[in-house]
Design a protein around this nucleic acid. Structure first.
Length: 499
RNA sequence: GCGCCCUUAGCUCAAUUGGCAGAGCAAAUGACUCUUAAUCAUUAGGUUGUAGGUUCGAUUCCUACAGGGCGCACCA
């Protein structure tokens, strides 16, 4: 940053800062009393006359465009609601205040007051009577120029580098109103999901992020250490086992929205920390939960659709979604009965469909791989895949009528998993056997298999009601609903290497 | 982790077979009292990601490294 600090642009802004101080103008203010944001100011003039003075307003925001004309100047001020034009006149401001405009830069945060009027080209504008500098911008923002062509705003040049936009999200947001809108839409979606669950008598809870044992999913964890207790702790890979402890405790409908952490690769659909929604409903099974998920998705999509600029991209859901049974779907794609194959036959079948490193994979892993390759990737419209093999689902109840399977569904759309749900296993004897099978896989080298969680078993032994549970990846759901291709574009501060 | 591609001014991008590194925006100075990608004139801004190599000469060709992008693999 040495050369940047020496750059003429930064030096010029520092010089202006010094001059402001010399003239007794504080460059960083404490507050500003606003009467209108940009959108309300535009609405306040309504269809008012073009010349006559409209309502008085006090507005504040960032200077994003500047057009000086000698004894007048036009500027655009941007706030959270939009842009508003300012009109400065020397005869209105007086010599001294008008001269102070020379010390402003693009990016400065200012407040301005005066009457609204409409310019001869029709734009609602503040005829500035006085203005205050609220924060001097000492570093230029990479503003592009905006042009309105046929009613659409077109950006010219600007801030394009994907890495810098993620690293400096503050600058990305400051110069791209569409990025701000996208994150506002994400927030609205999450709020809508909370309202949806709250209205169904779910309560929102918080469970540990730091866990002595990790479980509830298959993934490599981040490991950390508690110094005072001198013990390892894991950042959670799922909320599941703690939320089900709460079901045992009589909190019959619970949900949590929070970050899970998985120590795996980063790509367009994976960030090491990501937002997960899990919810559990006592006395429900997985079929009940399919209906809840369908309704939740409709509510989430409606929330995203409320943003006008995203509306056309949001898929329209028409529940019920189709159900595809796991085993028949795989067998159909494979041309043989996958579950009845022995391990050797399964491995050669997997190799035929292009699975790599087959020899090092456990049996459930191979089944999972084959299903992903042959079936999941083909699922474009929202589809419930149901009734997974027992060995893939150590926390799900056996399927009524076919104990080789479990009562589990995953929702796929765009070839990606959107939700994962079970009729939750509530038999502690069966659960212990499943944990021990996992522990055996772990001992045999499967790094993602879990161990035995004795405390969780103790909870279940007290008696856990039948329960339906669902996990939904919030980032992916929002990507899908907003038509965003990269997960880093829906996470404000995605994980990155240090600069 | 593997493969391909990219890295030039604060930002967005050029540069012919290897031959003096350019433009627009932003910035500075000046002109301009309804502009809106304002306009006009002038000025400044660069160890071309880093380190080597080939060459009379490298932004250009080669090697290594760093960062990034895209695909594949793993995972949600």
């Amino acid at each position: 940053m040495t050369s940047a600090e020496a750059s003429a642009v930064l030096l010029a802004r520092r010089a202006k800062l010094d001059q402001l101080v010399e003239r007794g103008i504080a460059p960083f203010a404490y507050r500003y009393e606003r009467t209108h944001d940009a959108r309300r100011a535009v609405a306040a003039l309504g269809d008012g006359p073009s010349d006559a003075a409209g309502p008085e307003v006090r507005v504040a925001g960032r200077l994003v465009a500047w057009r000086a004309h000698g004894k007048t100047a036009f500027a655009h001020l941007a706030d959270a609601s939009g842009r508003l034009q300012l009109y400065f006149r020397r005869d209105e401001l007086g010599e001294e205040r008008f001269a102070a405009l020379d010390l402003l830069d693009l990016g400065d945060v200012i407040g301005a007051d005066g009457p609204l009027f409409r310019t001869k080209t029709g734009e609602v504008t503040v005829r500035v009577r006085s203005f205050e500098l609220l924060a001097k911008s000492l570093r230029p923002l990479p503003f592009g120029k905006e042009e309105v062509v046929d009613g659409r705003t077109v950006m010219h040049s600007g801030f394009a580098d994907a890495e810098q936009r993620s690293r400096q999200r503050y600058a990305d947001l400051a110069v791209h109103s569409d990025v701000r809108e996208l994150f506002v839409a994400r927030s609205r979606m999450v709020s809508a999901i909370r309202r949806f669950l709250d209205a169904r008598d779910f309560i929102e809870v918080e469970t540990p992020v730091l866990q002595p044992l990790y479980g509830g999913a298959t993934a490599r964890p981040f490991v950390t250490k508690h110094e005072a207790l001198d013990m390892p702790l894991y950042l959670r890979i799922a909320d599941e086992l703690y939320l089900k402890r709460l079901i045992v405790g009589g909190l019959e409908r619970v949900y949590e929205i929070g970050h899970d952490f998985r120590n795996e690769g980063i790509d367009r659909t994976h960030n090491p920390e990501f937002t997960m929604l899990e919810f559990y409903q006592a006395y429900a099974d997985y079929r009940d939960m399919m209906g809840v998920v369908e309704a939740l998705l409709v509510a989430a999509a409606d929330a995203v659709r409320s943003d006008a600029s995203l509306a056309e991209r949001v898929p329209v859901f028409q529940p019920p979604f189709p159900r595809v049974e796991w085993v028949p779907a795989l067998n159909h794609a494979l041309g043989s009965d996958a579950l009845s194959l022995d391990l050797a036959a399964l491995r050669s079948a997997a190799e035929r469909v292009g699975i790599e490193h087959v020899a090092s994979l456990s049996r459930p892993k191979i089944l999972d791989e084959m299903f992903q390759a042959l079936v999941e990737a083909q699922l474009e419209a929202p589809t419930f895949v149901i009734d997974y093999p027992r060995e893939l689902s150590p926390l799900a109840k056996p399927k009524r009528g076919d104990p080789r399977l479990t009562e589990r569904f995953e929702l796929f759309a765009h070839g990606k998993e959107m939700a994962n749900a079970f009729s939750e296993l509530n038999d502690p004897i069966d659960q212990r056997a499943r944990f021990e099978a996992q522990a055996a896989l772990r001992a045999a080298g499967d790094r993602e298999a879990s161990g035995v969680d004795e405390d969780y078993l103790r909870a279940m032994e007290y008696g856990m009601p039948p329960t339906g549970g669902v996990g939904i990846g919030i980032d992916r759901l929002f990507m899908y609903l907003s038509g965003t291709a990269h997960i880093r574009d829906v996470i404000l501060f995605p994980t990155m290497r240090p600069e």
